[in-house]
């Protein structure tokens, strides 16, 4: 009995050894991968996992930080108490965080700024960014194709514009730009001077059109450069043609076309109004300013201004539609 148990043990041991010699012993791990392979794997990680990986060790942090990640939309928001982030990939929210510790928030922002390549970036800060040393002293730049500013003052807008790569194609400002001085500060920013499209919603002065045109004449802006503005005062159009009275090529109640110093380029100002958007002393006015080729014929002008007005005020036609629905309701009752 004793001998047979021992024999069985020996048999088992032999089997185990045989098995060990057949199955290779693996001891390869993440640390055995070259940086090139690690970077390929990091490229497949989602944002949350990248954040975790960069907390494991210094070496991993520097690798993770060297790898860009594409977001189709990012929203950075903040007030006196919190700092928040929402990041979207393929139109799906992939990361959302609200941090009460502002310092942690700016640290996270620094990382996102470093690795994020944004299709659309929305900046919405109610409090002043300029008071935060962490933000102001960070040299990193945002990479974004389009930028939208919600809320905040001109100093916030300028602080972010200064931290934006000059590859930006569109800047939309829905912040409080109230005075001519603030507008002048914006015009001094290189991204504003070079961006193909920018707009301001609800500017409170009437000097924006001629100032932008003057800047474009000075900077020899490219054909296609566009500025749009909605204004709640009445004399922007008038101020523009009066300012450029010596340069006027043509003028109607809807358009003014002026010469620039380049014989091949003209600047066209259009006033947006139609059966919905009307011109009136107390109504918001919509303008579009564009650099065009001098050869452009008047027959090539597009009279449909709805599309570009919607960029400035996406809800204006909704209001009209709802007005109409009331009209229809009246009709309905009349018919009854």
């Amino acid at each position: 009995m004793y001998r047979s148990r021992r024999a069985r043990s020996i048999e088992n041991l032999i089997k185990t050894i045989e098995k060990l010699s057949i199955d290779p012993v693996y001891d390869t791990n993440w640390s055995d991968m070259s940086d090139d392979i690690k970077l390929k794997c990091i490229g497949k990680l989602e944002f949350k996992e990248r954040l975790s990986l960069r907390c494991t060790a210094k070496e991993e942090r520097s690798l993770v930080d060297s790898q860009k990640i594409k977001f189709n939309r990012g929203r950075f928001w903040g007030d006196e108490e919190d700092l928040g982030f929402q990041l979207y990939c393929d139109n799906k929210k992939m990361f959302s965080k609200c941090l009460e510790d502002i310092n942690d928030g700016f640290e996270l922002m620094k990382y996102i700024k470093k690795i994020g390549v944004f299709e659309n970036l929305v900046i919405s800060f109610e409090n002043s960014l300029t008071n935060h040393e962490q933000f102001m002293t960070d040299d990193g730049l945002f990479t974004a194709k389009t930028v939208e500013f919600e809320h905040g003052d001109v100093d916030n807008v300028i602080a972010v514009l200064r931290k934006l790569k000059n590859t930006v194609e569109s800047i939309e400002i829905d912040s409080e730009i109230t005075t001519s001085d603030e507008f002048a500060k914006l015009l001094a920013i290189s991204n504003i001077r070079n961006v193909p499209y920018w707009h301001i919603q609800d500017y409170e002065q009437t000097d924006s059109l001629h100032k932008v045109a003057q800047m474009w004449i000075h900077t020899k802006a490219k054909v296609g450069s566009t500025f749009q503005v909605s204004v709640n005062k009445n004399s922007s159009f008038h101020e523009f043609w009066e300012h450029f009275i010596d340069r006027i090529v043509s003028k109607t109640d809807k358009r003014v076309r002026i010469r620039t110093n380049d014989p091949d380029h003209h600047i066209l100002l259009e006033r947006g109004f139609d059966e919905v958007v009307e011109i009136g002393e107390y109504l918001t006015q919509y303008f579009r300013l564009m650099v065009i080729t001098a050869e452009m014929n008047e027959s090539e002008y597009n009279d449909d201004c709805k599309e570009w007005i919607l960029k400035l005020d996406p809800e204006i036609y909704d209001e009209y539609d709802s007005d109409n629905s009331f009209d229809n309701l009246d009709d309905f009752y009349h018919e009854e």
Partner: peptide, 20 residues
């Protein structure tokens, strides 16, 4: 490889990938 650490914390990743 990326799927191995989906939804994991830094500590869990360190353990799974044996990162010193």
């Amino acid at each position: 490889v990326a799927m191995m650490v989906k939804g994991k914390s830094p500590e869990e990743i360190r353990e799974i990938w044996m990162i010193p």
